[in-house]
Amino acid sequence: MTDQPYQGYDGYDGYDPYRQQPAPQGWPQQQPYDDPQAAQPYTQQWQGQTWETQVQPPVAPPAEETAYMPSQGAGAAYGGYQEPGWGGAQAPAHAQTPAPAQAPAQTPPTDGSGPGYGPATVAGNARITDAQRARLEGRSPIIEPGVQPAGLTALLGLLLAGAAAIGPYALVVPLVALQAVTAAGWFRLNGMWPARQGIALAFAGALTADVALLASGRTPAAILGTLGVWVLLALVLQLRSHADPDERMYGLMATVASAALAIVASGYLASHGDAVTVGAASVAVAVLVRALPLPTPASVAASLLAAAGAGVLAGALTGLGSAGALLGAGAAVCALIGHRAASYDYPSRFVHFTAGVALPLAAAAPAVYLLGRALV
């Protein structure tokens, strides 16, 4: 042992952990760490690149301000924050995309004019209907067919009256036209269009009733038999449908009602010729008077009085005499009910020129048959 410090091989004099080691050749020299705040005691320093780690959720504007807004990309769903790439620049943490300018929302006018669209929403906003606007404003949503459909009803009624005076086979021609318009108008009145199968089924039932009446000597039992068969046929066809249960039930009721009205109109063919002449002429006059611009109570009373007067006049020409007033008034009551049904809830122009024309005459057919049998 010796008191001299240990001398290693080749001049190695021991390991000094605090002595700066020379860097290998070609490597950059490491500068000593110099931090002005290093001398402050008990202070933890954070060095290096940092970023905000809390992503703020985007502030969602109201639904009406974001209707049909184009997509802003995947990053927009997280408030504009994007993960940094392996060598690219880091996107801002809260990139805001300016919202497009919104057009002012249109409100429905109170004077009944203009389209009246509401504010846009994500699910869409349907146009307010005329009937809804009328209810909101306290007005009646009923619009009557008017003068032109009333004129067509009167023309068809006069054709029925004149053809009945000729004979049953002449009566078939205007009757078939009435039945076709009745079938189409009832489906359109119920909002079901196009409904070609239902219209064709109802019209086929009417034609079958006409043929059965002519073949059986105009026996009313042919109408009841045809009606029962067509109700069963409509039920079978609706059961085979693949639509929703509610839609099938709605279609079944519309088909049955349309077929019933078209088949019941065959009552003109089963009635006495004089009764058809008086009843059809009275309906024609009643509908024309009802279309005059009068208050509803006065218009209804005037139309009934006019129908009774037309019944007296037609009865004098056919042989019914004064009994024609009762037949004319009864037919007019049923015709006004059909006229009111065609006026329901702001119908379209097509409804006015189909159901508005045909329903008054079709609804009056049972009264013409029953009163005709009682009075003739």
Rank of each mutant, 00 (worst) to 15 (best):
Y15V: 03
Q21W: 06
P22R: 15
Q29D: 01
Q29F: 08
A39G: 15
Y42W: 11
Q47E: 07
G48Y: 02
T50Y: 07
Q56M: 11
A60P: 15
P61Q: 15
M69N: 14
S71I: 10
G75E: 13
G75P: 02
A76E: 11
W86H: 14
G87D: 15
G88N: 12
T97W: 15
D111A: 07
S113I: 02
D130Q: 10
A131I: 00
A131E: 03
A134C: 07
P141S: 06
I143G: 05
G146Q: 11
T153R: 09
P168Q: 05
Y169N: 07
L178S: 08
G198H: 11
A200H: 06
A202M: 04
F203K: 13
G205Q: 09
A209V: 02
A215G: 10
R218C: 03
L227V: 09
V231G: 13
A234L: 10
A234E: 09
R240L: 14
R248G: 04
M249L: 15
L261I: 05
Y268H: 05
G273Y: 00
A281S: 14
A281Y: 03
V283G: 06
A286W: 02
A302Q: 03
A306V: 06
A306G: 15
G315K: 07
V333F: 08
R349Q: 14
A358D: 08
A362K: 12
